[in-house]
Design a protein around this nucleic acid. Structure first.
Length: 197
DNA sequence: ATCGTGATACAC
DNA sequence: TGTATCACGATT
């Protein structure tokens, strides 16, 4: 469980997004309680991307996307859901990875069954609901001991990828009206937490 | 297929 | 100032 450092995220989002599959996301609540999950679905947004919030330049909402790698970008969508992104690449380059789904490792109180556990962090809005992520975390850094941080894939996960026991699928992004031709979405095959287009 | 929900961006 | 749009999810 080595910590993901900002330098590891200092490359294009299209490179970071698939590399984040299998990494752990840890949320530490104000009361100290931790919720941990494995990232199983991501999407990349970057420069020259018509679907990016930064496609028409810098605004108050998207300014976190221009920050240093490891910055948290959270925005409100459809008046009721939040979406959580990890900023990548160098400062000044608007680039981020949307975390779409987690497989929770730790059972939060009130969720007993495996089926429920697979569903409650499936989809970017539900993920934020479960991890209690909102805009108060926007434009803040990922940091061990802070509200959110990342840990690298386990050697076992890496092994299973190498052996072909697990595989990552690359496909088109969903929930957008432009840039749908770009294959900038990645997910862990056979994971029960993946959004259906 | 439809709708809830409210911030945002940009046109006026 | 108004208003179309929206990186979603639950329900029919």
């Amino acid at each position: 469980m080595t910590i993901v450092e900002p330098e590891w995220l200092a490359r294009p989002s299209t490179e970071v997004a698939p590399a984040l599959i299998g990494c752990a996301l840890v949320r530490q609540l104000p009361d100290g309680q931790r919720i941990r999950g494995t990232i199983v679905e991501t999407e990349a947004y970057g420069p020259g991307d018509p679907a990016s919030h930064a496609s028409r330049g810098r605004t108050l909402r998207n300014q976190a996307m221009f920050g240093p790698p490891g910055t948290i970008y959270v925005y409100l969508i459809y008046g009721m859901y939040h979406c959580f992104n990890i900023v990548t690449d160098r400062p000044g380059v608007a680039s981020a990875v949307l975390i779409r789904a987690l497989q929770l490792d730790i059972m939060p109180p009130g969720f007993q069954t495996k089926e429920k556990l697979a569903r409650i962090a499936a989809g970017p809005g539900k993920l934020c609901r479960t991890l209690q992520i909102d805009r108060t975390l926007n434009d803040r850094p990922l940091q061990p001991g802070g509200p959110l941080w990342l840990e690298h894939q386990t050697p076992e996960f890496q092994q299973q990828l190498d052996q072909g026991t697990l595989s990552i699928v690359q496909t088109n992004r969903i929930g957008i009206s432009v840039g749908t031709d770009l294959l900038w979405r990645w997910y862990l095959a056979n994971s029960p937490a993946i959004s259906k287009p």
